[in-house]
């Protein structure tokens, strides 16, 4: 009897340890992709001159599922697999702890080896801004793999919004009413700050509520808890189609196309300059990633950016500006951006 018991318990323990071994990550992780022929996740790949990815690649996203960064990441992994660019299993993990700083720090300081060569992180200007403001982590702690595209925001109203258009809201704010805009962290906050500065209202009359991701801000908009929602086209796309979000202002120097074409730019609705804070979307890796691995991933992302699916189902559908930069160009671009941002905020 006792022996049977011990065997049963040993079995339970073994299974639990196995499960933990298989589970590569915490947080809201979900895996995508086809399994490459029953190889285990711990399979070793030796880094020779020709880098080959391991059977499982970890890809971290520092914001919630359904937001812009999440859609960006899932689109890339989907294309990499369906177009046969990389034969591997991607485990996309959304880790929002500490506003994303925890995972950014983890990736930045990963020690050299297979794991570092098979770890990627979605990184955009909205990630960089709070990172340098609140932590000592810097873009130089990463290997930049590629910049993929440039994104811009719009303001949307819902059926609950009291104002017919944004001009009406500006007038109301100027005469003392209180307008509430909801949006995501980082770059959305920067765009909001540029917006109220340009139209000359105070942050008390035009307020901003920071949500964990654009998807949460949209929820608040649909419930009528904020007057306007700030979003990039991708996260808002479904809701615009269903008519529950109506674009009212393009935060861009020119109008968007398609179903977002109705939204005027700021200069069209009054005596203002257009407000545009372009958001670059990039992919970075641990600083310890080998040069061969960097070359492999930057090339894989180049191939993604050249596919028809990327052009049509991502860039065109979500109205982004295609902007592929390889590792070297992207590194220069991002460190320049970081330098300017830190100078503007007076960060040492």
């Amino acid at each position: 009897m006792k022996n049977k018991m011990m065997a049963l318990l040993a079995g339970v323990l073994t299974v639990s340890v196995l499960f933990t071994g298989c589970q590569k990550s915490g947080g809201n992780s979900s895996s995508g992709g086809t399994s490459s022929g029953g190889t285990s996740s711990g399979e070793k790949t030796t880094v020779t001159k020709e880098f080959k990815p391991a059977s499982t690649v970890d890809w971290y996203v520092a914001s919630s599922p359904g937001g812009g960064s999440d859609i960006f990441t899932r689109m890339i992994t989907d294309i990499m697999i369906s177009e046969g660019i990389v034969d591997t299993n991607f485990i996309v993990t959304n880790k929002t702890d500490g506003g994303g700083e925890v995972v950014r720090n983890e990736v930045a300081h990963m020690s050299k080896g297979d794991r570092a060569n098979n770890t990627l992180l979605t990184f955009n200007s909205g990630c960089l801004m709070p990172m340098v403001e609140n932590t000592k982590n810097r873009s130089s702690n990463f290997k930049v793999i590629a910049v993929m595209a440039v994104d811009k925001q719009l303001l949307f109203k819902t059926e609950h919004t009291k104002y017919a258009d944004f001009n009406e809201a500006i007038e109301a704010a100027k005469s003392g009413a209180s307008i509430v805009i909801g949006g995501s962290k980082g770059d959305d906050v920067a765009t909001y700050e540029a917006l109220i500065q340009e139209i000359g209202v105070s942050a008390d009359n035009m307020k901003y509520i920071t949500y964990d991701a654009t998807s949460d801000a949209i929820t608040a908009g649909l419930g009528g808890h904020v007057d306007f929602v700030m979003s990039k086209p991708a996260a808002a796309s479904e809701y615009v189609e269903a008519g529950s979000l109506i674009p009212v202002l393009a935060l861009s120097k020119e109008r968007f196309s398609g179903n977002l074409a109705d939204a005027p730019t700021l200069s069209e609705i009054g005596d203002y300059e257009d407000v545009e804070v372009p958001v670059w979307r990039s992919v970075v890796a641990p600083a310890s990633m080998s040069d061969e691995a960097v070359a492999f991933w930057t090339d894989a992302l180049k191939k993604v950016s050249e596919t028809e699916k990327w052009q049509n189902d991502y860039i065109a559908k979500y109205k982004l500006i295609p902007e592929y930069m390889d590792a070297a160009t992207a590194t220069g671009y991002i460190s320049e951006f970081e330098k300017n941002f830190m100078a503007s905020k007076g960060i040492q």
């Binding site: 499960f19 589970q23 992780s29 979900s30 895996s31 995508g32 992709g33 086809t34 399994s35 485990i91």
Partner: peptide
């Protein structure tokens, strides 16, 4: 984690 493991 269970859902995530099973997804692939």
């Amino acid at each position: 984690a269970g859902v995530a493991l099973l997804l692939p």
